[in-house]
Amino acid sequence: MSAYANLLLVMLMAVDLYMVSTTRLDACIRACIIQAMILATLPFVLGGIHPDMAFSEQMHFVILAGATQIVKGVVIPWLLFRALRTLSSNREFEPFMSLHYSQLINCALCGVGFWGAAVLPWPVEHPHPLALGVALSTLLIGLYMAINRKKAISQILGYLVIESGLFVAGWALLKQPSSLMELGVLLDLLVAAMVMGILATRMDAAADDARDGNGGGDE
């Protein structure tokens, strides 16, 4: 089973790197959808679902996977596309750091992520080689996306990547689903994304342009 896990984790890393290097917002949102799909299948592979588990537990996995897929893969991208339609332009003009440097920085962040996973005292007995590293790298990349991008929408995307990083870290550390925790996280993610969407659109309505998350001088 772990072979598939490595494959999925590597795909997740690939999606992260793709998201950073694209300037088109709709492409980014589609990448998010792919990421959601990966995250939905990951528990089955990583979590150690095995046939002799009680039926209710297996159902547990299925419900969580379904919920993740619906929330992260369908509802939030729909919200973002709706917000994108109201905003005038589709392209993120000039992030603070040019794309080339962003990519270099992302590689560095992946390095830092894996270094962190290896060195820091994580409470896990037999850690999966890749899981924690990928989780931390995704987290750092998401944080970098939020810092580097000016448009409100791309900052929401950064936040989503952070959430997915956390999701993977959760699974890597806890190894089995805890209903209350996951549901709570998903619910919050949903509401947060909704509110951000509303704010982004209102910012556009109130502001002359949504070009920068909050550029311009203070009044």
């Binding site: 900052q155 936040y159 952070i162 509110v195 910012m203 909050n214």
Partner: peptide, 17 residues
């Protein structure tokens, strides 16, 4: 009004992260 929305955005973004 604009500053209030921007302040709310800063607050929301920072605290969520």
């Amino acid at each position: 009004d604009r500053p209030a929305v921007r302040a709310a955005w800063t607050y929301l973004m920072m605290c969520s992260v």
